[in-house]
Nucleic acid binder design. Structure first.
Length: 204
DNA sequence: CTCCCGATAT
DNA sequence: ATATCAGGAG
C-alpha cells in the first residue's frame, strides 16, 4: 500500500519542498517563515530577504526592526523575526554558524518544532530521522486510512511503522504536494488524484 | 487552550 | 465581510 502510494506519487511530484533555499541555514529561515503561511509567499519574501542577509552572522547582527521590515507581509512576522534572530545568535554562539544535524538540537531552536526539524533534516541533509507531519500530511494520511490519529506526533509514530525508514522524508514531501494541489482540505480533486482507486475516502 | 498575525479566496 | 490558509510557544 505505502510502496504503491510512493511509487505513484513519485511519477507526478518531485521529492522536494517548494521552499526556495540555497543553504541549510536558508532552509531554516524559510521553514520558520512557512509556519501557518504559504510557501509561495515565503519565497517572495526570502527572495529579497536573502539579498540582505543570508548567514547566521548577518541575521544575528541585524536589528529586530530590520528583519521585521523585510518579512512584514508574513503571518506572525514579529514572532518570526524574533525566532530568526535568536536562532542565528544560537548558531553563531554554540554551533560555529552551522545548522545542527539532529532532531534534538534543531528542536531546541526557537520557532522550530518537530515538523520543522524533520523537514530541515531531510531537505537540507538527506537525513531520515522522522516524518514531517504537517496539516497536509496529517489530512492525506487520514484520508488514505494510514492513521486515525488526530495529533501530528501520534500520527508520525504510526506512519513511521508503515513507511520504510529510508523513505520517510520522501513520503512527507510527496504527501505535502498531493495535499496542496489535489487532496485539498476543501473539495479534494478526486478526478486528478493518482491514488483514487486505492483511497478509502474517495466518496468524501 | 490561547496567543501570535497577514494575505488571498470566496 | 468572513473563511481559509497551515506551526510553535507558553
Amino acid at each position: 500500500m505505502v510502496e504503491e502510494i510512493i511509487k505513484r506519487l513519485e511519477k507526478v511530484f518531485p521529492d522536494k519542498l517548494e521552499l526556495n533555499f540555497s543553504t541549510p541555514f536558508e532552509l531554516v529561515v524559510a521553514v520558520v517563515l512557512s509556519a501557518q503561511e504559504r510557501d509561495a509567499k515565503v519565497n517572495e519574501v526570502t527572495k529579497e530577504l536573502f539579498k540582505k542577509f543570508n548567514t547566521p552572522q548577518q541575521f544575528a547582527n541585524a536589528s529586530l526592526e530590520e528583519i521585521e521590515k523585510e518579512i512584514s507581509s508574513i503571518s506572525f512576522y514579529r514572532k518570526k523575526a524574533e525566532y530568526i534572530k535568536k536562532i542565528s545568535q544560537i548558531l553563531v554562539e554554540k554551533y560555529e554558524g552551522e545548522v545542527p544535524k539532529s532532531i534534538e538540537e534543531l528542536e531546541k531552536l526557537p520557532g522550530i518544532g518537530r515538523k520543522s526539524a524533520n523537514m530541515i533534516l531531510y531537505n537540507a541533509f538527506g537525513i531520515n530521522e522522522g516524518i514531517a507531519v504537517d496539516r497536509h500530511v496529517l489530512r492525506v494520511s487520514q484520508r488514505l486510512g494510514l492513521t486515525k490519529q488526530q495529533k501530528p506526533e501520534k500520527a508520525e509514530q504510526e506512519l513511521m511503522k508503515l513507511v520504510p525508514k529510508d523513505q520517510w522524508g520522501k513520503f512527507s514531501n510527496l504527501l505535502i504536494l498531493l495535499g496542496r494541489y489535489i487532496c485539498t482540505a476543501q473539495k479534494p480533486k478526486h478526478s486528478e488524484c493518482p491514488l483514487y482507486d486505492l483511497c478509502p475516502s474517495r466518496e468524501l
